[in-house]
Nucleic acid binder design. Sequence first.
RNA 1: GGGCCCGUGGCUCAGACUGGUCAGAGCGCCCGGCUGAUAACCGGGAGGUCGGGGGUUCAAGUCCCCCCGGGCCCA
Length: 985
Amino acid sequence: MSRVRQLTRNFDPKKYEPEILKFWDEARVYERLREARKGSKRFHFLDGPPYPSSDMPHPGTVWNKIIKDSVLRFKRGEGYDVLDKPGWDTHGLPIEVMTEKALGFTSKKDIENYGIDKFVLKCKELASKNLESMTKHFKEFAVSMDWDHPYRTFENEYIESAWWGVKKIWESGRLYEGERPVHWCPRCETVLSDYEVSESYKDLMDPSIYVKFRVRGSENEYLLIWTTTPWTLPGNVAVMVHPNEKYVKVRVGGDLLILAKARLEAVMKDAGIEEYEVVEEFEGRTLEGLKYEHPLEDLVPVQQRLKDVHRVVLSEEYVTMEEGSGCVHSAPGHGKEDFEVGMRYGLPVVSPVDERGRFTEEAGKYAGLQVREANSIIIEDLEERGALFHRGTVIHKYPVCWRCDTPLIIRTTKQWFVKLTDLREKLLEESGKAKWVPKWGGERRFRDWLLGLEDWIISRQRYWGIPLPVWRCESCGHIEVVGSAKEIEEKAGVKLEDLHRPWVDGVTWKCPKCGGEMRRIPDIMDVWYDSGVSFFASVGYPHRNREAFQEIFPVDFITEGHDQIRGWFFSLLRMGTLLFNQVPYKSVLMHGFMLDEKGREMHKRLGNYVPPPEILKNVARDTFRFFVLTKVPWQDLRFSWKGLKEMERRLSVVWNVYVFATTYLRDRELDQLPPKEELDPVNRWVLSRLHSMMKKVRESMNEYHLHVASNEVLSFLIDDLSHLYLRVARKKLRSKDRSVADQWGRVLFHVLRETLPYLSIFAPLMSEKIYLESFRGENDPESVNFLLLADPDEEMIDPELEDMMEHVRSIVSASGFARSNAGVRKRQPLREMIVVTGNDAVRKAVEVLKDVLITEANVREVRIGEAPADGKWAQADFSEGSVFLNLEMGEEEILGGLARELTRRIQLMRKELGLTIGLERIEVYIQGDEDIRRALEKYYDEIAWDSDANVIKFVSDESEVPGSSFGKEWEVDGRRVFIWVRKVE
RNA sequence: GGGCCCGUGGCUCAGACUGGUCAGAGCGCCCGGCUGAUAACCGGGAGGUCGGGGGUUCAAGUCCCCCCGGGCCCA
């Protein structure tokens, strides 16, 4: 037998939310729920691992976790055994840099002096500390994940899975060591990926110079090049021109300069030269192969070796007419485009710069200088040699290290690559197999970008990361790639406690080819590799959980912000395709960014950042959850205190719906829903709405349209229940006819009870509180989390009836308008309402739902008819017709109105005396005129019932009233009325 | 410079993929009601040429083009 208990009247989430969280924690609700769902159909969610760079998550990250949580709760409600392991992306440069700062280090040398082992342990400590702290914050928002068993990229098991992947790539022939110009941070002394570089460009002031390269064999003919990086000139190998643009030979003083026609005017203006003369004009392509002399030949030894190389080459894609001279100085060692064109022409790669950004011996005079510091010296040298045409400065966007702000350089180094360029088509095809929400996330944003794909540099010259498991023989160069700790043990006889550097660095074994020493190459791996393998490394595959993995691959669902298209979504696709030849996820929900109240990005350093604890101080956890979940997920979300307060008010209405219902329902028997055919149309309507709501929530959650689902639940509770159904129900629930009261009680109970698990997807704390305090029966599970979502039943859905109610709503609304125009209050019962309409559906609605109209419009009679020709009427239109209210007052209306007034006065006095309805009974004495007496006589039962009075006596004199009564004089519709109320002991 | 997204009443946002009851909701404001959800609840009203301009169409917040403003990604 189900019984309902009264719900606390005050909506006080500050009090109950922490209690519920504590209850879940202590009762180990999630652990037991996981246990209970074991063996059911599985839903595999993969958490995109946040980076624990701080002890406090960004509010946007909390949003991210709440999105995930709502999907997880929904799937559990559907009965799935849900994989809900949270992840942490723990390696990489940010943690290293923070650790360096804490220790006061400025270079790799400091770290090596300190000891790599101690340094790596410090990094691990910092990551661990931060992820634990962030976990606490996520838990505060009721994010239900397996927090005790996260996957962390620094764990040995994770590293082993990652190694297995590297080995497999090696075996497939895609892992290679190559030389390539890369973005390099001279402070961190490591390569940076393109992705990392794009993080930050800064405005820097650099020289802007035009340099004359003398055409070999000529007296005074020069190619005029432009550059903002003079330090790359020692690496110059060629000059690029555009084959299809016009070039000119121009006489300036005694020189003949070659440059693009389209740039001529701008260059001369830049150089402040007014007198010049075009002597020849030709296509750029005719310059191909033209040899020139390098102006710093005598100072830079490496340039002397390039005497026969220096010449003009052609490039359509990299020569622009937007800036410069149209003759582009090309240093394949210091530029990706230069490198590409250089490869095409078989040009050598020159990169006389070391890992700290200083020139090497190859650069002769400049050896030992920081490249950027060498700029001015190089310019002076050019000037001395008469090669400088013009010097100026420019402020432009220049890439800096996203961690330490040091301006980056491009230098050519040996790195390990994974060949991808031939996989473009396959990656495109695979990305199309995933379901993208919204569609354009994958179809446009992702696909466009895949077209520009290049091979992937996976090596990094740092310490805190997954070591690249590549060993090479020092004597013969033989390479072995290791796929597990066990392999190391077999090869080297060493059992490692920790697979990180430096411990793994010390492992060596004998080369099977030549007997030389096999040593690990010192690099670690790009962190995008770490998170990219999470779809199998998070479960330890293939060393562990082999069968489980087969079952959960590809994962059902991932979701992250749109910045992760180029990030994690791609890195997963890349690893899935490389290792398993398929995209490793089925559905992707892309969400937006959290912006501040003005629509700007939220940043700690911008000072517009709202720490999660501050949110909790001001609003309920469920409020924040509902606030973010009702917004379209893939759009940026503007944080708003006002919006949060507004949502909190709406949730208090939801709370009140349950408070209201429980005050009526408590202590009734409510188990069975009466048979459908016995139900009042309004009850059939509310059940139809319930099932429509459930259906819509199921469908939209499965489409990951979380905003549709969450709004649907809210609107059902507020618009349908609070605004409409409960108003009608309140009278029926108190009906003296037991069967009516019983029917409405059972329906109301059923509706609210079935709604609870749906509500708990979005507001888990509130629904748990309501469940525990009011709805949970003796044999019910001990937490709302265990409840399954009831299946929508098509049989219960009656679209026609739902439409009818919409019509009734507009009729009620029109009658309210008519009343307010006529100045007749709603309390005043009116004789008759006529609905004039040509719409059959509306006619039917009026017939079927007449009861609603009678109570809501407070009229005695409702009929369909023609517009009345005479009499006193109030009128208003609605979309399908008009309503007319008869304003003529007969005795019935006047006395009925008075009765309502009397009831209201008695209630006010009751309240004033602090006498609670239902608990304390009263006696009432009324003195008034003849109408009052007759109203009391005619409506005695109603007034007594409504005001919960034992007896109401009409008196002609105060002497008839017991002395202990509380008396008051009122004016009712111009009549003087005395009312006395007395508590009955 | 390129790609993608967003720009709807005072505020915050649905609606746009599948042109035609799509001009909506909540808050705020104004007016009113209820008084057994009451430091609650309910009704009504005012308010928008859907960023601007052009185009396609019988018909356009909804499709196309250009411009302006904002965000993200990439150069």
